[in-house]
Amino acid sequence: MNPLNHVAIIMDGNGRWGLKYKNSRNEGHRAGLDTVEKIIKETIKQKINYLTLYAFSTENWNRPKKEINYLFSLLENFLTNKIEDLHKQNIKLNIIGVKNFSKKLNKLLNFSEKKTLKNTTLQINLALNYGSKLEIINAIKKMNKNNEKINEINLSKYLQTNNTPDPEILIRTGNTKRLSNFLLWQLAYTEIFFEKKLWPDFDKKDYVKVIGKFRKIKRNFGNI
């Protein structure tokens, strides 16, 4: 049975769900938060140590400004109301991406990271304003600046996930089959599961089913 230490998720389909059921993309984003909480709870139950959630990409700035503002207001409210609860559950919050948000949100993100820094039950990597290509380019620039040899070990050291093992599982909901500039380096040998359900409809049973499938996969890593 394959060991499982890290699950990464592209939470796709919130907007489409909102339009389908509530005639509002924003309502889909709100519903998606409920799924996030359910998946966090099940991740802890499954004794998985790392969970990386793709919340906002560098390309998402192309969305309508009203939708972007609503997304960040949702995040602010979530952290304001839930960070104490996350801390009590011994959950560590780690932000990957470039923090160039509002002063208020940046302060809240920094506070949340600092407050939960020493927690050990689960580390959540929240990918905000994250793009894997930019992450790799920045890692190479840092290696050059420090006159370090360019190799896999050194590059991995300068990635924002340097304190996190590579994911064994990637789940993408929303019936879309692409990586969307997410963890391109880290996913080299990750098992990928594309799910038809939109993110707000993805539930505990779906998550457990993916984990069960992963446990049975024969992982060769280039061998026979």
Rank of each mutant, 00 (worst) to 15 (best):
N2V: 09
H6V: 11
V7N: 04
I9Q: 06
G15F: 02
R25F: 02
N26V: 00
E27N: 01
H29T: 01
D34K: 05
D34V: 01
T35G: 00
V36S: 01
E37P: 00
K45Q: 07
K47M: 02
I48A: 03
T52K: 05
F56R: 04
E59S: 04
K65A: 09
E67T: 12
E67Y: 06
Y70V: 10
Y70P: 07
F72V: 08
F72Q: 10
F78D: 08
F78Q: 05
N81P: 00
I83W: 11
I83D: 06
Q89H: 15
I91W: 10
N94E: 13
I96V: 12
V98W: 12
K103A: 15
N106G: 12
L109C: 07
S112I: 11
K114R: 15
K114V: 06
T120P: 07
T121Q: 12
N129Y: 10
K133M: 05
L134T: 11
E135V: 05
I137H: 12
I140N: 08
K141P: 12
K145C: 07
N147F: 13
E148R: 13
I153Y: 13
I153C: 03
L155Q: 05
K157C: 05
L159I: 02
L159N: 03
N162H: 10
N163K: 14
N163T: 06
L170E: 00
I171G: 05
R178S: 09
L183W: 02
T190W: 05
T190R: 08
W199G: 11
D201H: 13
F202H: 04
K204Y: 15
K205V: 15
Y207M: 14
V208G: 09
F214S: 12
